[in-house]
Nucleic acid binder design. Structure first.
Length: 601
RNA sequence: GGCCCCGUCGUCUAGCCUGGUCUAGGACACAUCCCUUUCACGGAUGCGACAUGGGUUCGAAUCCCAUCGGGGUCACCA
């Protein structure tokens, strides 16, 4: 019995998309659940857009999510790319290459047999010619289908076909097209059931491009067959591709004459935005253009001048950050981006930084950068189109689980059919729960690692006073993301001599009732000075503040708020004991002193 | 526009296959209250859906049909 094999086959043209993460997760979970293998394959046949860097990034993103492949490329500790292949005793021949661009010889061998069996033929139309026909068809509201040339006979390797092949081999620029069968194609889908496509729906699609690389359809079918893939799990946007793949599987044979298998398919729901459009990288460009539009409608700038200004600012920024190269390309792409001719992500990000707006998180890396935990992302995304259908002991739907649970419970039978909207609120809530489920120590550790990468200034400051645990305790409950944790502790970064205090807070908490707050603040200040550095901890400080409040008869509130304004500059901060402890004796006293002297005059 | 898929609270969904236990359950969001030194956390309560119209049936969220609505896809991208 050959093992069950699923595969995730991204094209390395950018970061891992959140929808791709779900596909990978489901493929992984299905393989684990079934005792099979999960394979990663890199579909880099688009020479212009693929990059090794993207492939590396995608592998890293998957690893970060805890989705580890049994077969295909992985990143070694030394940073180089290695690969897992079928073992000698696995009953399967080794795959060899998992990057499609390195498998061209394999595709060509199958392609040639397709040609000599009359099921594929070289076509010499130029791109412009077919585009023109297509445009004409669209203008006439007709469905465009590539018309099969008159000299092609389905399934016959005629002299005319031989002549075409000879021309192609002689080096004439051409593509190879598949001679599509004129019959009904039924796709058996594990989620959707049988999906029927009427005869004549499929045209003679391209299977090898003019640059010699196979198209997606062809490479996928050859690879899935030759690599031993048994189940194809992918998003529903691929459903309409499937009849092509099935037709190809029916037409292809191995050198020994055996037929290709018809694979088992399971198409899962699309993940879309709250407005029901498909979630895509372009949403970033959309958001950036929207910000720009708002700016334009507000300040009605001269457009050419604005482009010049923007360009200058971006270049200056790049120079300051030492990212000259990247920004040079941004600058050349900017006019096209503004005109809507390209959706370059770097341009979008540069504009977002300029207009101080947040771009929507679309890729796994975006979520990582903004402080989401991988376990929360996996958990949330697993619920988009799948549900365990189990209840918790108190009768609620079971929806909090980890990847190990998925690996033991996932099944195709509980994949839904309806598209799901990506509710960022719910993800945020899942993330907050994941953070709160961490012990203080664990949270401190992971938060610090994140800060070092994404908030280095803050990390260095906290590192300097070594108060991560105290800060983590103070901040954990009010952090829905790791980034929130930094926001909640922003007071740490305040200058001890800063003289700006939120006026409303000053009025309410210090000056009201005849300077009640200031008086209290003076009292605590004196008392705090008696606490030495060794006993400067949250519990001691809290007790002291409580005492002052009691002695004064005003309770805990007024003193607390007075101190809070003094040390944080505003009426909001984490609990006082912790806040003072984190600041340390010197800093805390200095701030109160500053506040007293600024407001007493 | 052609083809394909889908239609339960605003959102994710349970229930649908195997009609009655569904005056449709849970979660997120929202609202109110409680807790509270601020902001949060937490606790309680509330708001809120079977797209519409026909069948079938004693009985339909569940089965059938139609309508309407939404989405996907129509590349020498994957």
């Amino acid at each position: 019995m050959p093992p069950l094999v699923t595969r995730f086959a991204p094209s390395p043209t950018g970061h891992l998309h959140i929808g791709g993460a779900r596909t990978a997760l489901f493929c992984w979970a299905f393989a684990k659940k079934s005792g099979g293998r999960f394979m990663l394959r890199i579909e880099d046949t688009d020479a212009a857009r693929s990059s090794l860097e993207s492939a590396r990034g995608i592998i890293e993103d998957l690893h970060w999510l805890g989705i580890v492949n049994d077969l295909g490329p992985f990143i070694k500790p030394d940073g180089s790319i290695g690969q897992h292949d079928w073992e000698p005793n696995s009953g399967r021949p080794p795959v060899g290459e998992y990057f499609q661009a390195r498998r061209v010889a394999i595709y060509n061998a199958y392609l040639e047999r397709l040609i000599t069996s009359g099921r594929a033929y070289p076509a010499f139309d130029t791109n412009e010619e077919t585009e023109k026909q297509r445009a004409a068809a669209v203008a006439a509201k007709q469905t465009y289908r590539y018309p099969r040339p008159a000299d092609i006979e389905f399934g016959q390797y005629t002299p005319a076909m031989q002549e075409r092949w000879k021309r192609a081999q002689a080096g004439e620029r051409h593509v190879v097209r598949f001679a599509a069968p004129n019959e009904e194609i039924v796709v058996h889908d594990e989620v959707l059931g049988d999906v029927r496509y009427a005869p004549g729906e499929m045209d003679d699609f391209v299977i090898r491009k003019a640059d010699g690389f196979p198209t997606y359809h062809f490479a996928v079918v050859i690879d899935d067959e030759t690599m031993g893939v048994t189940h194809v799990l992918r998003a529903q946007e691929h459903l309409n591709n499937t009849p092509r793949h099935v037709a190809l599987q029916k037409a292809l044979t191995h050198p020994d004459g055996t037929a290709f298998r018809i694979l088992l398919y399971a198409h899962m729901p699309i993940i879309c935005n709250m407005d029901a459009s498909k979630m895509s990288k372009r949403d970033k460009a959309k958001a950036a253009r929207k910000a720009l539009k708002e700016y334009e409608s507000k300040s009605k700038p001269d457009k050419p001048q604005m482009i010049i200004d923007l360009t200058r600012q971006l270049m200056a920024k790049a120079k300051a950050e030492g990212t000259d190269n990247e920004t040079a390309s941004i600058v050349t792409l900017l006019p096209g981006f503004l005109a809507g001719d390209n959706d370059n992500v770097q341009v979008a990000e540069a504009l977002a930084a300029h207009f101080k707006i947040a771009l929507p998180e679309i890729e796994v890396w975006d979520f990582k950068k903004n402080g989401y935990l991988p376990e929360a992302i996996c958990n949330f995304v697993a619920l988009l189109g799948w549900n365990p259908g189990l209840k918790t002991p108190d009768g609620k739907d079971l929806e909090k689980f980890d990847n190990a649970f998925l690996a033991s419970h996932f099944g195709l039978d509980r994949i839904g059919k309806t598209a799901s909207k990506f509710d960022r609120n719910k993800l945020l809530s899942f993330n907050a729960d994941a953070i709160n489920g961490l012990s203080d120590e664990e949270f401190a550790k992971r938060w610090r690692i994140w800060c070092v990468e994404f908030e280095p200034v803050f990390a260095a400051r906290v590192d300097a006073n070594g108060r991560w645990i105290e800060l983590a305790k103070a901040v954990k409950a009010r952090a829905k993301t790791l980034r929130d944790g930094v926001k909640a502790s922003a007071f740490v970064l305040r200058d001890d001599h800063a003289a700006d205090f939120d006026p409303a807070a000053v009025e309410k908490n210090l000056k009201a009732n005849g300077n009640q707050g200031l008086t209290l603040l003076r009292t605590v200040f004196e008392r705090l000075q008696t606490v030495d550095a060794a006993s400067w901890n949250a519990a001691t400080l809290h007790a002291l503040i409580e005492q002052v409040g009691q002695q004064d008869g005003t309770g805990l509130g007024p003193v607390s708020q007075a101190i809070r304004v003094a040390i944080a500059g505003a009426a909001v901060s984490p609990p006082l004991g912790e806040s003072l402890a984190v600041l340390g004796r010197g800093s805390a006293l200095k701030r109160i002193e500053t506040c007293l002297s600024v407001l007493s005059t």
